[in-house]
Write a protein that binds this DNA or RNA. Structure first.
Lengths: 152, 152
DNA sequence: CGTGAAAACCGAATCAG
DNA sequence: CTGATTCGGTTTTCACG
């Protein structure tokens, strides 16, 4: 479904999602038209589901990040935590996990006080216990996909 | 540094980072020129540090995600784990954290076997113990920044 | 599935108001 | 910041290999 050329296009557009077709064409070594056709297909088949800027969290007033693991208070309930939490915009990611807890959240807030409020909101909204791990420093995230990637 | 209008631009371009200045202009209610000026400033001041596509991990052949917490074997060593690990393209994010372990990694691999190999690579490269939490399902991540955001 | 070229469109840059 | 202008680059489409 996605061949080696598609991967090269994904690598190129991953370095700069606002790159023009001509720029992608250069990097990939295909004609502009071919790149356009393939890129459209990558979008329509759901390989690429959107484009986002990488925004400095501090500039948005949210310098504090944390992982929050949550566990249902009552193990025998309709477990719809993700839907119950999706309205909280401070939650950037929500994964169900195999481990000590049921879900792992990644959140960003403005201050410790806001983190406290968010944790309370999460507990109330999803009927869960929480275990929070504060992020002290982020060394990297949102990396472009590696040219070459893992050894194949 | 970033006022309310900048936030609106960030929200708009967060929904589609390939949007044209005219499209952003519509959403924000400013002229194209003003949007252009502000967007350039957001880029040059480091508020926006790049643009990325949102790519389906399965399409890239990496359906398995995990969190890996790492702890130095020897607490009295030059702690340069992030640099020692940055060459591993399977590691998407690396945060230092306050909690049971020193760092939290987020990784994506093709298979359990590749995860095993990655964990070994991490242990050898950074002289650390690891604690891995497998992701069973991702409900959301890479969400556009919320129109309105947290209640102000 | 790729190329290349023509035509329509859009973005960058500039400037007066 | 707006609105207008100009130029150059980009997207799009299409005929062809």
């Amino acid at each position: 479904m996605t061949d080696a050329v598609d991967i090269r296009i994904l690598e190129a557009i991953s370095a700069d999602a606002r790159a023009t077709l001509a720029q992608l064409s250069d990097k990939v070594g295909l004609s502009v038209s071919a790149v356009q056709t393939r890129l459209r297909k990558l979008e329509s088949t759901g390989v690429i589901t959107g484009y986002r800027p990488v925004v400095d969290p501090e500039a948005l007033g949210k310098p504090l990040a944390a992982f929050i693991e949550i566990t249902p208070l009552d193990p025998g309930q309709p477990d719809d935590a993700p839907e119950r939490l999706s309205h909280l915009s401070e939650i950037e990611a929500c994964h169900s996990v195999a481990g000590d807890s049921a879900y792992m959240l990644f959140v960003r807030v403005a201050s410790p006080r806001d983190l406290e409020a968010l944790i309370r909101d999460i507990r109330l909204a999803a009927s869960v216990n929480t275990r929070t791990t504060i992020v002290l420093q982020t060394f990297f995230e949102n990396r472009p996909i590696a040219p070459g990637g893992p050894r194949d």
